[in-house]
């Protein structure tokens, strides 16, 4: 066995350790209420002795917690749909605004382009905390506090998709577009017949990266949504608390599923997106 193979093996082991938290959750979701409470007793009840423990394989696997959550908690579905609406709303908006903008930046020359693009890039770097006050004042002024639109609209205007799509659209050879123009193709046709198909890896990576980000959105809803019936899953989960641990594990797993699915289906594009957002070409 060469050194490289041993290294690879160690890497794989470390990678499995990285996956352990998810296995923990899955195991917890398959335990009955009693088994969870037994494992976590020292945390659940003040003054009890000893330490919490965990099993990667439940002794008495059961789907009871799933049934309980899915059948008996209508609130959970509301939150789930809120999350879906938020994520899909933001992504749709980003596509609608971002694709034309990136196309314009990538394929045309106009005065002030460099300056505008630099401003876009700087704005994309601002973390939410810096934008918190300005978002609040704006949403307050527009009457959009306590509404899903108040979260969706600012996020749909995020400049990150424009930046990422720009990188992909720049890769389309100009000669191709010039030839189509000579054949009489209109400017809008160029986007539909060349931009969208050839830039589709970019579009998919924006969707995958965006979905992982907005499915996970916490700061904005926390700050701007007082009405709990509008909350996304990500805010609801920590509220469940350790006392109802059985349900909390199931809810965590269900919240994880769509993101895991997006990751599994889009990993290649995810990597392309990460690389395109960081390197020059």
């Amino acid at each position: 066995m060469s050194g490289k193979n041993i290294g690879l093996l160690l890497c794989g082991l470390l990678g499995i350790v990285f996956l352990l938290p998810v296995c923990f959750l899955a195991a917890g979701s398959l335990m009955g209420r009693r088994e969870v409470e037994e494992c976590l007793a020292p945390i659940l009840w003040e003054g009890s002795e000893g330490y919490a423990q965990w099993r990667l394989f439940p002794q008495y696997p059961t789907l009871r917690s799933y049934v309980q959550l899915l059948l008996d908690s209508p609130g959970f579905f509301v939150m789930f749909w809120n999350s879906v609406k938020l994520a899909l709303g933001v992504l749709a908006g980003q596509m609608l605004l971002g694709i034309p903008a990136a196309w314009g930046f990538a394929r045309y020359e106009f005065p002030g382009k460099r300056l505008l693009f630099t401003i876009y890039m700087l704005l994309m770097m601002l973390p939410f905390q810096v934008r918190m006050l300005s978002d609040y004042l704006l949403l307050d002024g527009l009457g959009l506090l306590d509404s899903l639109w108040g979260i969706i609209l600012p996020a749909a205007c995020s400049t990150f998709p424009v930046f990422l799509l720009y990188r992909f659209f720049c890769g389309i050879p100009e000669a191709l577009l010039e030839a189509a123009r000579l054949d009489g193709a209109g400017e809008i046709a160029l986007l539909f017949y060349f931009g969208l198909p050839l830039g589709s890896p970019g579009i998919i990576s924006v969707l995958v990266l965006g979905f992982l980000e907005y499915w996970n959105l916490i700061e904005q809803p926390l700050a701007f949504l007082k009405d709990q019936s509008l909350w996304p899953l990500a805010l609801f989960l920590p509220e469940i608390g350790v006392k109802e641990a059985g349900i909390a594990f199931v809810a965590s797993v269900i919240a994880l599923l769509p993101a895991a699915l997006a990751f599994w289906a889009g990993q290649d594009y995810l990597e392309q997106g990460i690389i395109a957002s960081a390197t020059k070409e």
């Binding site: 020292p42 797993v253 990751f263």
Partner: peptide, 30 residues
Amino acid sequence: LVKSLFLFPMAVPVASVVLLWRTLFHSQGI
């Protein structure tokens, strides 16, 4: 495969692991 294992945590919603961090790092935790 190894790359996927390392990348996966990026996809895990923060809210999903909160419970886990709590049970892991509690003074009587795992």
